[in-house]
Amino acid sequence: MKKNVVHEILFYLVVIFISLMVLFPFLWMLSSSFKTQTDIIAWPPKLLFTPTLQNYEKVFGEQDFLKYFINSTVVGGLAVGLSLVLGLPAAYSISRFTQRRLALFILLARLMPGISFLMPWYIIFSRLDLMDTYVALVLSHMLIALPIVVWIMSAYFNSIPVELEESAMVDGATRQYAFWAIILPMSGPGIITSVTLSFIFSWNNFMFSQVLSMEKTKTLPIAVYNFVSYAEVDWGGVMAAAVAIMAPAIVLTMIFQKFVVKGLTMGAVKG
């Protein structure tokens, strides 16, 4: 009995240690974002300090943060929306007509290093005068979102019995109408998973936006990165910017935790 208690206490200590390891960068970021520059450069690092909002005021005041926020949202939203339009029928087709080679083809977009198409894009988009436009950014971010949508949704469609469409077809529907009226309305969980995940990946993307966007369509990660380059020493401001950019992804994750876990793990678990 006594041995068990010791065992339990040890277990919870380990769990708390793991949690702290995971959390400490977030906590450090958060606390630094409320520190004055003096408190940040204090040695040894200060754990107790008077919190200040001046970093957030600076970030949201001096920088065009709202604009970048909107850019990120528009690019992510459009890329995810269009990926659903292209991806849902493709995923359905892969699932119902067992098109394995097609699945691999689309998976390739997830596996290949982004830079191997980024360089040609740069050249092509420059020629077409599409640099620093939503068109270029949305197209590039779709290449992030589309494989995620197809990958998750084809697995989801596999879990829906084919008799549902067959029944609808006997009831008088065409196959495409059955897909629209029967299959899509019951695919909510799968769609939430793929939308959340692909939006977060688009939101976090740095490389594509770094090359294809300039002032007009700059997204948040680029803004945060530039903030560091311009204001090398203003750590408080940088941390406030980091908090601002991570917050939406983290909030989304908290709301849709179950779906995100499923989306991230299923590729490996389903085999």
């Binding site: 019995p161 008799e163 549902l164 067959e166 029944s167 609808a168 077809m169 006997v170 009831d171 008088g172 529907a173 065409t174 029967i182 309305p185 019951m186």
Partner: peptide, 20 residues
């Protein structure tokens, strides 16, 4: 003919009810 043009009704083993 497509299933919808045959004027038949079918009951499936797993019922295939539309869950939504």
């Amino acid at each position: 003919l497509q299933p919808r043009d045959r004027d038949i009704a079918m009951v499936f083993q797993n019922y295939a009810l539309y869950p939504h």
